[in-house]
Amino acid sequence: MGLEERLPAVLTLNAEKLINWARKNSVWPATFGLACCAIEMMQTVAPRHDLARYGMERFSASPRQADLMIVAGRVSQKMAPVLRQIYDQMTEPKWVISMGACASCGGMFNNYAILQGVDQIVPVDVYVPGCPPTPEILMMGIFQLHEKIQKMPLRLGRAH
């Protein structure tokens, strides 16, 4: 990224832990609910499986202020360029959770209309299976993402 890449590791170690802890505890998702998975994503924010406990209830409509894109639902051919544009508009650091079978691999719709996996156009960090995944499974995916964020080195830039 910059100066942090050239400093010896021992100087940035504690800062890295602190910064990653701060990042993982307030990930702001971008509203990218497409289909049925979006409803389960909304249920995750609902009172029972409260996502606000993890600092993630602030869904940001503007991608400039979002950290996480939860691709919740099937991505059609017409929507794919829009998805890439929203991903490009997000600022670093950014992560992508591919929620559900349709976003991960095209799901049950192996046809002309659906992109067979959103990882064809954006790099995905966590794949959450299910059709649709229940809120518990989505939260498990989010915890995996938190672990990944915690271990993310400050010095390593993303290779995309």
Binding site: L34, A35, G73, R74, S76, Q77, K78, M79, V82, M108, F109, N111, Y112, A113, I114
Partner: peptide, 9 residues
Amino acid sequence: YLHTGIEKQ
């Protein structure tokens, strides 16, 4: 933007 091809499927 959500056309899934359900009828063809």
